[in-house]
Design a protein around this nucleic acid. Structure first.
Lengths: 252, 252
DNA sequence: GGATTGCCTTGACCCAGATCAACCAGAAAA
DNA sequence: TTTTCTGGTTGATCTGGGTCAAGGCAATCC
């Protein structure tokens, strides 16, 4: 185990060994020349326009993939239309489930999205022949589970203001990670979601989202540039508003 | 892949090939005599009394394991004491995360619990040498992720009444699966949690839980025997109250 | 230019569920 | 037998966030 872990760890987080994120984060086969060639031959790209559905719940899905650029969402709905977002897919996140060809959630592109895809069958075969692929996928799934549980705490117990602050902090952390910087001090982000989508993510209404953003602005926690760009004069202050301890607890 | 899947599938759900649930649900090595012997040599049992903590968040945890009997909970807390349950561990559920020795959540036994445990190091080694173990664990983790997402929908968008009905339906389904029956018609379950623990699971207060249970009783959806036993005169009626479509959507 | 559309903000009001508080029932201790 | 404790119920009241409704502001389209 340890050897394999070290092999994989060397590609974690920062190092990317090509143009396809699957190579370092989703499923890295860099260390195995044969597998690399196999992955190269298998992969193909698909792109989606803002608002365009990627798959619909219940639909057949014959590929898995990971996000190269853009932002996509996973949502669930009740019969009467109440909607809850259950996943936010940012670059390097994985979409689809091995060994299940029916999508369990609606996946929608919220910005222009490029996916790096693999046909399901050969990908599943690859998972069987290369343990690293299965191990990496397990690691990623466990991370997602941790994130989901963090989100359960937010949905179940945080106030609207804390929810908004938590959301902004998450986006800021992931944005910072993408540019290999540490979040802190003064920083700026662009919101990848509309107020309505944020509401669906946070278990709120869009009016409440709007009001709380205005309140955070009034209180000097954030500044707005237009509707979509947000500046944090002091990132620590934002984190203090989020209800979490300083480290944020978000493992990703 | 397919061969391995078939091998494993034969032990799924119903068939149990020994006294340890890890053998059919968590990590089945039945088909490999050597691995079976290895698992036999590795496993040991630990039991916990009601209310006793299993591990505390941040504590070192040098084992993983699966629940043999009883019910345990995973909870997260905010600094000010607000508590959210993020997992309910019933028999055959897995506890602990490979490749992480610091517990991320508080795990507490709510009834008398028996765990079938494996020391972390040899278990991780086993995961590397036997792909089935890693595959099975991936399957289980993906199921847990689905359940967590279903729970996010509940926490974010359901009313108190729907939350209670959903919770009762989940317990009933898992109870039925344990006794190899289909849930339906008239059935009876014993609640494994106090009102307060249910509240922490559902993102409510214990008073609201109590009131909604009383309301469901008044409306004839459930009958109570004492405080902890619940009878559903008509299981379909309960499901109708839960906000979910008939199949429940719960993949486990 | 004016009209339409999509997204956002703000105000007024309301209600589901939280909070605070009293009380109840059974089990265990004294 | 009474006392205490734990877990559960119920009532009265309050409030955070939902609901409904009226604009505002750009961008795009005739």
């Amino acid at each position: 185990m340890t050897q394999i872990n070290q092999k994989i760890a060397s590609h974690d987080g920062q190092e990317r060994c090509g143009d396809c994120p699957i190579r370092y984060r989703a499923v890295c086969a860099h260390c195995e020349a044969d597998e690399l060639a196999l992955l190269e031959g298998m992969k193909f790209y698909r792109s989606f326009e803002p608002g365009q559905p990627i798959v619909w719940e219940g639909e057949r899905m014959d590929f898995v993939g990971s996000v190269v650029t853009g932002v996509a969402t996973l949502t669930q709905m009740l019969d009467d239309g109440r909607t809850q977002m259950v996943g936010l897919l940012l670059p390097s996140d994985f979409l689809g489930r091995p060994n299940r060809d029916i999508a369990a959630y609606n996946a929608v592109a919220t910005t222009r999205v490029v996916l790096c895809c693999f046909r399901r069958k050969p990908f599943e075969a690859l998972m069987c022949t290369t343990p690293q692929v299965a191990h990496r996928l397990l690691e990623m799934t466990l991370d997602e589970l941790d994130a989901a549980r963090e989100w359960m705490l937010l949905l179940g117990r945080k106030t609207a203001r804390e929810k908004i602050a938590s959301f902004l902090a998450i986006i800021a952390r992931r944005e910072a990670a993408l540019h290999k910087r540490d979040p802190g001090g003064r920083m700026r982000i662009d919101l990848p979601l509309t107020r309505e989508a944020m509401a669906d993510y946070l278990g709120l209404t869009l009016e409440t989202v709007s009001r709380q953003i205005s309140a955070l602005k009034r209180d000097g926690v954030i500044e707005l540039v237009g509707k979509r760009a947000v500046i944090f004069p002091d990132f620590a202050r934002l984190v203090g508003e989020s209800g979490n301890d300083a480290d944020g607890g978000y493992p990703r």
